[in-house]
Computed example of a mutant assay.
Amino acid sequence: MSSSISNSDLTNQLEDLLRGFIKEKLELIMREELTNFLQVEQPDVSDSRNGYYKRSLDTRYGKIENLSVPRDREGAFQTGLFAPYQRRDGWLEEAIIKMYQSGMSTREVGKFVERMVGSSYSPATISNITDATVEDIEKWQKRPLAKRYSVLYLDGLYIRLRRDTVGKEVIYLVLGVTEDG
């Protein structure tokens, strides 16, 4: 009698192993951060370890449950791995922005996110995330330009377009470098 593991079972086992490994390493890093905080950053303060609190963190590798975050008695320690109330690393927001930029609607992005992480984002939340990026782009576009440039780079890119008269059209890219960098 031979027993075999299906591909999906093997994939699930590998994903669980990876999440376990990541959880273990995150907890190790946080313990070392607390040790450094108590011994190096605040050696004269009479502060000490005060156990752990549990939290979950959504990462690009899946949801890490029951992550043990160390704490100190004074409540002054904060890990550098994530913000105090952060529940996700930035990968999801970056993915949402890229999907939206590639032409997916906010509803399509919301459905995709729900399939990926199990929690849903409303179209309004997705719009808010992408609006923040649009604001950054507009600020960059409206920034003041230097009066003199010491170097000017020019480049062109042919892109196929669907128009009545044009098969290909050049888009020119310009990069200017000022004397101070």
Rank of each mutant, 00 (worst) to 15 (best):
E135C: 02
E114Y: 05
S48F: 13
T178P: 06
T165G: 14
L67F: 07
S56V: 02
Q86L: 08
E138N: 07
I5C: 06
N128I: 05
V40H: 11
S8T: 15
L157V: 15
G51Q: 10
D131H: 11
A124K: 07
Q13V: 11
V177Y: 06
Q86G: 12
W91T: 07
L26V: 07
G75Y: 09
L18W: 00
R71A: 11
T165A: 11
T35C: 10
Y153P: 00
I137G: 02
K98W: 04
R87E: 05
I126H: 04
D155V: 10
E169S: 15
T133V: 08
M116V: 13
P70D: 11
L175M: 13
I137T: 03
L152W: 05
W91E: 14
L38Q: 01
R55F: 01
F37W: 12
D58T: 05
Y61A: 09
S4M: 10
K147F: 06
V177E: 13
Y149D: 01
E74Y: 05
R31H: 15
F82C: 04
M116K: 04
D44C: 07
R148H: 15
R88Y: 07
E179L: 08
K168Y: 15
L92W: 07
A83G: 14
E138P: 04
G176D: 11
D47E: 05
R143K: 12
Q141P: 02
S120H: 14
E15L: 11
E135W: 01
M30R: 11
R60M: 05
G75Q: 03
K139V: 06
L161M: 12
Q78I: 12
S68W: 04
T59K: 00
I97Y: 00
D58H: 08
R49D: 00
S120Q: 13
S127E: 14
G103S: 10
G118M: 10
A132S: 13
I126E: 01
Q78A: 12
F77K: 02
R73V: 05
L145K: 09
Y158T: 01
Y172S: 04
R31C: 13
Q78N: 10
F112A: 10
S105D: 09
E27A: 09
R162S: 14
K54V: 01
D131M: 06
Q101C: 14
A146E: 15
G90W: 00
G110K: 03
R107V: 14
